[in-house]
């Protein structure tokens, strides 16, 4: 569904992504690993047009989306959950979800979309009138994912959802992602927590200096080259 050809991207003239070729099919989770500073987050941002694209092409369902803007890309069915705890902290849970719905109010029914999200994350329904900053870290991450789901996406770009969460909570989030995948959603997942994330991934790409250095299935983590990458030498 998404195909990236020879993509170079970065910020204010500095190339961070240097010629990436990548693709993801429907109902697939692709995990992106790699040491810090190798351009994993920038790759997600460039797909969402939050980084400058210098060359290359991005195709989504056969349509060239390289030149489109962020809100148009959301419209096509790609949603992005950035790193950290990306919620509107002063707004209530419900208002956060409504903000996710911003571009879609004339196309989908708000009540039904909320119902679908609350079914997936019942804890959010119980706290829907509380401000987002009163939620725990795990709940805030769930809220961020739910806000993306309000956009009825076909592909979610997820940047380190397990950051700062306990192993148990990370596992919970990961199992939710598997459930979403079964509902015909594709996910590009950037993670530091390699082992936990690898369990749910269909494929793994390892970024090295702005390029995909290694690619394979979850057995890839046993490859001795991976260890070398993380320890700095090639």
């Amino acid at each position: 569904m998404l195909k990236v050809e020879n993509l170079s991207a970065g910020y204010s003239g500095i190339e961070v992504i240097k010629g990436v070729n990548f693709c993801i099919g429907s109902s697939e989770i692709v995990l992106i690993l790699g040491p810090n500073g190798t351009g994993k987050s920038t790759f997600l941002k460039s797909l969402f047009k939050l980084a400058d694209i210098y060359s290359g092409k991005i195709w989504f369902f056969g349509k060239d989306i390289t030149q489109f803007l962020t809100h148009q890309i959301i419209d096509f069915g790609i949603s992005y959950v950035p790193q950290g705890r990306p919620v509107f902290s002063q707004l209530t849970v419900l208002e956060n979800l409504e903000m996710g719905f911003w571009l879609f109010s004339d196309r989908f029914n708000l009540g039904k979309s909320l119902e679908r999200v609350f079914q997936e994350f019942p804890v959010l329904e119980a706290k829907k009138h509380l401000p987002a900053n009163s939620l725990s870290g795990g709940e805030q991450q769930m809220l961020a994912i739910s806000r993306a789901l309000m956009q009825h996406p076909k592909l979610i770009l997820l940047d380190e959802p397990s950051l700062g969460l306990s192993p148990k909570l990370s596992k919970q989030i990961f199992s939710k992602l598997v459930k979403l995948k079964q509902q015909n959603l594709s996910i590009i997942l950037v993670e530091q927590n390699a082992r936990g994330a690898a369990e749910i991934a269909d494929r793994i790409c390892i970024f090295v200096d702005g390029q995909i250095g290694l690619e394979g299935d979850r057995e890839l983590l046993r490859d001795p080259r991976v260890k070398e990458l993380y320890l700095g030498g090639l």
Binding site: L50, P86, E98, M99
Partner: peptide, 23 residues
């Protein structure tokens, strides 16, 4: 109102607002 919520959202976190498609 929808507009008021969007104003509060931008006030809260402008970059995040752009990410959900609010200009």
């Amino acid at each position: 109102t929808k507009l008021g919520k969007a104003m509060r959202a931008v006030a809260d976190n402008k970059d995040l607002a752009e990410i959900v498609g609010v200009s």
